[in-house]
Design a protein around this nucleic acid. Structure first.
Lengths: 245, 245
DNA sequence: AAATCAAAGTGTTTTTTCAACACTAAACAG
DNA sequence: CTGTTTAGTGTTGAAAAAACACTTTGATTT
């Protein structure tokens, strides 16, 4: 049996999934049932998180959480923050939950947040008893603990990263159309983009490889498929900063 | 006496200071002396760090560390990462140090990193027995623990932040010249900038306020002084992302 | 008092990027 | 064969970026 490193450190994963229409996030339905009456006391949503084992780095723990939920490995994972406010576990539901699960409700837990990016179609969720589902990020209003704050922080980090690094591809299947890529930028950044200008811009990215292959089974002109080349990206990425205050 | 939250969580501060010439960082000279012979076994450098108290948020702890060293409050502080690799304390010197200071050398410590920005001239270091000094960032080659990695990570975060947010002013005294500001960008980003183009660019920043005041005591044409206006910045900052892949 | 030194300050031109905008082409559905 | 739907494609004017050199001002030196 693996030993837990320390009951005051946990890793929370904000697992984003894109389905060509909207950005989703994996959330766990946390139901607290009264032990005596068997009645449901409340139900709310949390991010997917877990403690960290003794022989595990933070990133290993994040990867493990992701693997346990999705069965996927080698998924893009990025640390975006550590959350340690003194009041982060003090909401009434959270206190009840901590007591019910046998933990000290006055304990502090430090959470290190990682976000990861998936094409929802790649995933068949492994529920493992827990009620884990995709929820549209735009519709999430509040979460247990300080998880809403953590989610917003992840979203902000994702947006910023998306603007400067080619990570959008992580949210798409291997082969994708330019319209899908554009939609992704629009959804994540919350903007509308001009189709022609968008295509001009990405035409400059050498690591976006056009394939001799087209969409199939669509009731309109089928789009050309593209894929991302990590090799080309790593060869051509510029190390230097643009000076662009 | 305050209780330490948990001996496996610490906060490390990367305190950057700018002196109009180069970027510096505050480091602690860690000297290990043999208890029996009194001989110095080794001496190396660490970042300034500390554990976190029970009633303290991460940011409070970072602010406290900074205050203890410099006596300054309300200093810009930014979290840039959490470091929890399994091997981060395993170098021989680090092991010896941990043993000598009565700690379990096999313990894992999670460090949350904050960087902060100062004009070196604002600071009179409060040594408090420890040997704390400014070192030019460019000349730091290795540090104890994984602190070199942490420093590089802080530097990267600072550079990125500097490109998109007006945080350069935090590294300068209240009143400064445009040449000093330019030098700051050059030093932090490691680039050379054209004076005229630089001035054209910053002329667009409304929050950079020209004063009716000039440099004194310089053996050349004295430069006009400027200051940063947080108010103007907060009024005019744009919430929207530029789409700039 | 004049000459020298050192950094301040200032414009123009060319190139590149950004933003706005509308029609034709291809596949499937009916 | 017609309609529907999305793919795909260029031009122009405006703004920003990049390249580039001389004059001004105050303090210091002679």
């Amino acid at each position: 049996m693996k030993k837990v490193l320390n009951n005051t450190i946990s890793v929370d994963c904000v697992i984003f999934g894109f389905d060509f229409e909207k950005l989703n996030v994996l959330l766990v339905d946390r139901v607290l049932v009264d032990e005596k009456t068997g009645k449901e006391l409340f139900s709310d949503l949390t991010l997917t998180g877990n403690h960290i084992f003794e022989d595990e780095s933070l990133e290993d723990a994040a990867a493990r959480i992701l693997f346990d939920l999705t069965g996927l490995e080698n998924i893009y994972l990025k640390q975006f923050g550590a959350f340690g406010d003194t009041e982060r576990l003090l909401k009434p539901n959270d206190q009840a939950w901590l007591r019910a699960s046998g933990r000290d409700p006055h304990s502090r837990i430090l959470s290190v947040g990682y976000y990861s990016l998936l094409a929802t179609e790649k995933v068949t969720l492994k529920w493992k008893g827990r009620n884990v589902k995709w929820y549209p990020v735009a519709e999430v209003t509040d979460l247990a603990f300080d998880h809403y704050t953590i989610l917003q922080s992840a979203l902000q980090a994702l947006r910023r990263e998306l603007l400067y690094e080619p990570i959008g591809f992580e949210l798409l299947p291997e082969k994708f159309t330019l319209s899908q890529l554009q939609k992704l930028y629009e959804v994540v950044l919350g903007v509308e983009l001009d189709k022609r200008n968008f295509r001009k811009k990405i035409a400059r990215m050498k690591y976006l490889i056009p394939l001799d292959e087209k969409q199939k089974g669509v009731a309109h002109k089928p789009a050309r498929l593209y894929m991302f080349s990590r090799e080309v990206y790593e060869k051509t990425r510029k190390e230097v900063f643009d000076f662009n205050i």
